[in-house]
């Protein structure tokens, strides 16, 4: 029996393909991502506020890895510009890039959360 509805399967078709079509596994991973993503975003924002760019690069890298399980294009791929700017010590670009993609990242987390609703 399918654990996801048609819309969810279409939205996360690539993610599902990567886990070998195992819907149960995708839901397990979604549960973890939904738990981990909000505190990770908070941590990233706090590090940006403190201008701790080395920490920003690390957290953004980890966040990118976490969310890439579900989406490999924008906004996850856009996190690379935050990582690159932070590594180069460019606070302004890192901060602006994150502000630009933050709403889309929140949307993505919500979409992943929807996987748990069924």
């Amino acid at each position: 029996m399918s654990l996801l509805n048609e819309q969810q399967r279409t939205r996360f078709d690539h993610a599902l393909e990567r886990v070998g079509g195992d819907e149960e596994m995708l839901i397990v991973l979604a549960r973890m991502a939904v738990e981990d993503a909000p505190p990770m975003m908070e941590k990233l924002e706090a590090e940006l506020a403190d201008r701790e760019l080395a920490a920003v690069a690390k957290t953004a890298h980890a966040f990118k890895g976490l969310m890439s399980t579900f989406e490999t294009n924008s906004p996850v791929e856009d996190l690379q510009s935050v990582i690159d700017a932070a590594r180069e010590g460019d606070f302004k670009t890192a901060s602006a890039s994150y502000s630009d993609i933050k709403p889309s990242l929140k949307d993505l987390v919500q979409q992943v959360e929807q996987l748990l609703a069924e």
Partner: peptide
């Protein structure tokens, strides 16, 4: 990343 650990373990 615990997602990676879980995925590899199951897969």
């Amino acid at each position: 990343d615990r997602l990676v650990l879980t995925l590899t373990q199951r897969a």
